[in-house]
Write a protein that binds this DNA or RNA. Structure first.
Length: 423
RNA sequence: GGAGGAAUGGCGGAGUGGUCGAACGCACCGGUCUUGAAAACCGGAGACCCUUCACGGGGUCCGGGGGUUCGAAUCCCUCUUCCUCCGCCA
């Protein structure tokens, strides 16, 4: 959530920046500022009335103490109209606050200056490519064909048990997923991230604080009976560990990692790109999160990107790094880099990681601050990144590493797997 | 699920109708002492909102919401959470 002060102080540049990320309702900024102006003037009146009320109350107390009953009673009678005025102003004030909040929560984050202009993923900028493209054998198969051939994933079984988009991993497929969990967690731990295993259901406050609500309402699975949401990413519970916290500067940065399943309704996305593991309702992911000093967050963003890149290199996958354009930026993000791996048999780039700096957008909702050197409380910056999301990694591994007589596993996974090759 | 107790500042913990934003301790900041540090001593210091160029001034906040009262951390209602005991259970 943006700060109203920021809107007020930089009204026009805020609008321009929102425009850049394809947010067109910039008249809402004017509306907020107007409402806030009203709010502040009422607040001044309110405070004045409250001040009078308070003073009178004390006087009444003193009158009673001094035995001046009659005077006290008289003054009490006079209080009635004052109280009524207070009530009216309070009411008005609260209504304005609610109205402002309603609008404000629907304004996305301001893009970082380095975010390229653009309206869709076609305008994302490739900043780097790495790894080496495989040369596939004759008659190479897609990962869903390979999954069937070696009984790694049973898509139809998942459809029967739950519905489409809920695959069942089987045998060496399940082993491969488990190996990846351990590999990713070990690498993150080695890089200084503290491992957590958080709840998979979160309440409204948490979903709001990291920005899923109200923006992503309808995209999360919701348990009506208990008013809880299934997490779409570990970002939600992990970041919310720090909700309402006041940190010390020397405790920064905080680095956390968690492995969790993720649940997404993916309402409205049918047809294309949903074959096999490309898009699922439930998938597993290891997520890294950092809570950073505002002046260090971009440096940390780079570190997180390096970490993710190192994983892809170790897995021997061809990848590219994209700088997301304004139109493709997530609601809460100021700057996002995506990693895509090449899925050779599908001949498609698949997004496997998204690394973002949210600056103070989430911290504002989280009320996540630190005390700086001057003793002032300042909002922190939050960042996160997938490191990594499993299904598309698995898809790429299967397709890229296939040979005539099996699928070779990357060297780093062998100790975790207990085998070298799926055959 | 049943019975009882509790929720206070970054943390711990007093406070049961008026001058309490709140004693005290820890942590924190400044100073004295010291070659330096520690200890000791002295002093400072809550968060948020409104207002002011600034100094400052005003308001709100003692788990959330509502109520009683001229006045609530303190009384009442309600919700949430935690603890203890009983029951059930992976």
């Amino acid at each position: 959530m943006l700060l109203i002060k920021e809107l007020r102080d930089n009204r026009e540049s805020v609008k321009e920046r929102l425009w850049k990320r394809a947010f067109r309702n910039t008249e809402l900024i004017d509306e907020i500022i107007d409402l806030d102006e009203k709010r502040r003037s009422i607040k001044a009146e309110l405070d004045d009335l409250l001040n009078k009320t308070k003073t009178r109350s004390k006087e009444i107390g003193n009158l009673y103490k001094g035995g001046q009953r009659e005077e006290a009673e008289q003054m009490k009678a006079e209080m009635a109209s004052l109280k009524e005025q207070v009530r009216l102003r309070e009411d008005e004030h609260r209504k304005l606050e609610v109205k402002i909040e309603e609008i404000l929560v629907r304004i996305p984050n301001l893009p970082h200056e380095s975010v390229p202009a653009g309206s869709s993923d076609a305008d994302n900028v490739v900043v780097k490519e790495g790894g080496t493209m495989p040369s596939l054998p004759e008659g190479a198969q897609t990962h869903w064909e390979l999954a069937a051939k070696y009984d790694l994933i049973r898509f139809e079984a998942g459809t029967k048990i739950t519905g489409s988009g809920f695959p069942v991993f089987s045998g060496m497929g399940a082993r491969l997923q488990r190996a990846l969990v351990n590999f990713f967690l070990d690498r993150a731990t080695r890089a200084g991230y503290h491992e957590f295993s958080p709840p998979l259901l979160v309440n409204k406050d948490s979903a709001f604080a990291t920005g899923q609500l109200p923006d992503k309402d309808g995209q999360m699975y919701y348990i009506n009976e208990d008013d809880l949401y299934l997490i779409p990413t570990a970002e939600v519970p992990l970041t919310n560990l720090f909700r309402d916290k006041l940190l010390k500067e020397e405790d920064l940065p905080q680095k956390l990692v968690g492995y969790t399943p993720c649940f997404r309704r993916e309402a409205g996305s049918y047809g294309k790109d949903v074959r096999g593991l490309n898009r699922l309702h439930q998938f597993d992911k290891v997520e890294i999160v950092q809570i950073a000093h505002p002046e260090k967050s971009y440096e940390i963003l780079d570190q997180m990107i390096d970490h993710v890149e190192s994983l892809l290199l170790e897995l021997e996958l061809p990848y590219r790094l994209l700088r997301l354009c304004g139109g493709d930026l997530g609601f809460t993000s100021a700057l996002t880099f995506d990693f895509e791996v090449y899925s050779a048999a599908q001949q498609k780039w698949l997004e496997v990681s998204s690394v973002s700096n949210f600056e103070s957008f989430q911290a504002n909702r989280l009320k996540l601050r630190f005390k700086d050197k001057d003793g002032k409380n300042r909002l922190l910056h939050t960042l996160n990144g997938s490191a990594l999301a499993f299904p598309r990694i698995i898809a790429a591994l299967l397709e890229n590493k296939q040979t005539k007589d099996g699928i070779e596993m990357p060297a780093v996974l062998r100790p975790y797997l207990g085998f070298d090759k799926i055959a």
